[in-house]
């Protein structure tokens, strides 16, 4: 099984899964905090429409985890205020 790196920790994924699917498969449904209410958010629409699942990937901010295929060695950073 291949791995991506999420906030410094290895996360396994099955070839073909998105970053969101890999996170959900590991039991994580929240990985972002909202700007105003500091609410936890993760995947909601799952098809690229709602933008709740934003992550930073290999330094590129604002990536929709539900659309992005996981690739071995990909570095994912979940951070607060990614919606700014």
């Amino acid at each position: 099984m291949s791995e991506i790196v999420v906030d410094g920790d290895p996360l396994p994924f099955v070839e073909g899964q998105t970053v969101a699917a890999a996170l959900v498969a590991a039991g994580r449904v929240a990985w972002r905090t909202t700007r105003v209410g500091r609410r936890p958010r993760g995947v909601f629409c799952g098809i690229g429409v709602c933008f709740d699942c934003l992550v930073t990937v290999d330094g590129a901010r604002g990536q929709r985890a539900c659309l992005l295929p996981a690739r071995p060695g990909m570095t994912v950073t979940t951070r607060e205020d990614d919606d700014e």
């Binding site: 099955v14 073909g16 899964q17 998105t18 969101a20 699917a21 890999a22 959900v24 498969a25 449904v29 929240a30 936890p40 958010r41 993760g42 995947v43 909601f44 629409c45 799952g46 098809i47 709602c50 539900c66």
Partner: peptide
């Protein structure tokens, strides 16, 4: 977190 659209649940299942 954990509340998804019905389509989102299905997309995770069918796609991943």
């Amino acid at each position: 977190p954990g509340v998804l659209t019905a389509g989102g649940l299905q997309a995770l299942l069918k796609g991943g």
